[in-house]
Design a protein around this nucleic acid. Structure first.
Lengths: 147, 147
DNA sequence: TATTGTTATACTCTATAACTATA
DNA sequence: TATAGTTATAGAGTATAACAATA
């Protein structure tokens, strides 16, 4: 088990990471609000824009109870951004999928999330590769999963 | 204005940052839940443990409306973690401050947030310094403020 | 008049439990 | 019986508007 460090350098890095996290969320919520979406609604729309999926799977991705997804998708559906389709293979399942308007909104949302991208442009290729390697090592096994 | 990049390396770094952000929030909420606190309650308690402050200032720190802070501090006060004190200098102001029990809880919360610290222990001093410098440059002017 | 904190209201997100349709 | 989705309910966070006390 790794020893937890409390030296000034480590603490400063921890604080910097905290700042990155706060900034990331701020920008995400602002971008969502610009489309009159809540954070949860924007997250679901973003998920579905990658791939339509059953209600249950959305809940797994969001790490929340399936009953919550009903309401979130209801609101997206009311706004004409998402629709529920039957699953031919299993009549219990409803596949949530973005409408054309929803797909456009999702794309606009993605494009407006420049916080993480723009500052990276200030770094050289070498710096970006270094940052990538450091983050990978920080995250260990559990790097981005595509499940 | 910086050009936004879309090369594979940049996109991978962006995704890694997104993973760090998600992990950070997960661990924060889990740590809070271990003390039967919501994320917002844990955040306010953490703030007050650094320095007692007026309700209004808490709202500024949380970037939310002052009316919301009333409820959050109410719940912390009900649990005996926070108390409201009069401000001798301005009788309109109420200073929220952690009780002894609240201060202990805040310390336990801080200690249990090892996500950001523990993986850093895997990196050498040089790597940590490099990560610090890269993050500083990413954040530009707006690094951690202590206002 | 302006500011601080609160209250009232409405909406969203959240978990829990019970229900239905289907497997 | 088990699973997918929903409904009902209650608690918490959020913004808006209106209010009392104080500056």
């Amino acid at each position: 088990m790794a020893t937890t460090r409390t030296d000034p350098l480590t603490l400063e890095v921890v604080e910097l990471i905290g700042t990155v996290v706060a900034r990331y969320y701020e920008e995400y919520d602002e971008a969502a609000a610009a489309h009159s979406l809540t954070g949860a609604q924007a997250r679901v729309l973003g998920l579905l824009s990658l791939e339509p999926m059953p209600m249950r799977k959305i809940a797994q991705k969001l790490k929340c109870e399936p009953s919550n997804v009903t309401g979130i998708v209801d609101r997206l559906e009311t706004r004409g951004l998402v629709e529920r389709r039957p699953d031919p293979a299993d009549r219990r399942v409803k596949l949530a999928a973005p409408t054309e308007k929803g797909a456009q909104t999702a794309q606009q949302l993605r494009d407006s999330l420049t916080f993480a991208r723009e500052p990276l442009a200030e770094l050289s290729d070498g710096d970006r590769a270094m940052l990538r390697d450091l983050l990978r090592r920080m995250l260990g096994d559990s790097a981005p999963r595509h499940d």
